[in-house]
Design a protein around this nucleic acid. Structure first.
Lengths: 110, 110
DNA sequence: CTTTAATATCATCATATGCTGATATGATTA
DNA sequence: TAATCATATCAGCATATGATGATATTAAAG
């Protein structure tokens, strides 16, 4: 039998988990508009600066975002076009399952 | 400022979180092949029966799967065509970011 | 070279999760 | 109705997570 860790399901789960947090989604949605400075992301999302840096670090490690330096600023951008597509497709799915999602007591980020 | 909970990001996060577990992915991938009995899903995935039932319950609440009874069996199926699309798109993204995903120490399911 | 602005890291805490094992429910057949 | 098969639920545990506050790092400017 093919175990779960063998089949790449673990990787896929990781990918989804990267997207499975409201704060990270806020960052990614912001980056959908275009590359952004950390400071800009902090202002846009209302998250604390360490929190933003922390999430960006994870997203960077996972390849979901890229970064580059501009003067004393660091600019982040989406790592892959299809990340945006994933977010968009998720929106469409939500249009139908939103009610269920809303009432589901589980899968609430801590 | 638009807070995170206002913008539907929480719901989107929930949706992704539903997909963010290897066991649930195994179940959903299995259901991609067609409707399945709980027993069949247990055999296919190698997960324990309570574990499978537990995950299916959550997926059901969130509208990611549907169920119907057939005799003494309960048959589950995907709740929406686009769930399959999401999984497929995720695979394509992974083709590019898999290396990063693999080395990322975070986002490991407990 | 010193100061300051921008970002990154760290320890800590509270919380939600997924799994297991045991048990309960529900439906079918004898 | 009793026995059995299929599924669901529950309590308890171990673990990873996300946020915060304080601090470190890095780079530009004076």
């Amino acid at each position: 039998m093919l175990t779960i860790t063998d089949t790449g399901l673990a990787l896929k789960a990781k990918l989804f988990r990267g997207l499975a947090d409201p704060s990270r989604l806020a960052l990614l949605e912001a980056l959908r508009e275009g590359p952004q400075t950390v400071t800009a992301l902090v202002e846009t999302t209302g998250l604390s600066q360490p929190n933003v840096s922390n999430h960006l670090r994870c997203l960077l490690d996972c390849g979901l975002v890229q970064r580059s330096r501009q003067g004393r600023f660091v600019v982040y951008r989406l790592g892959d076009e299809r990340i945006a597509k994933l977010l968009q497709l998720a929106e469409q799915v939500l249009a139908d399952v939103a009610r269920g999602m809303y009432h589901c007591t589980r899968y609430n980020a801590p």
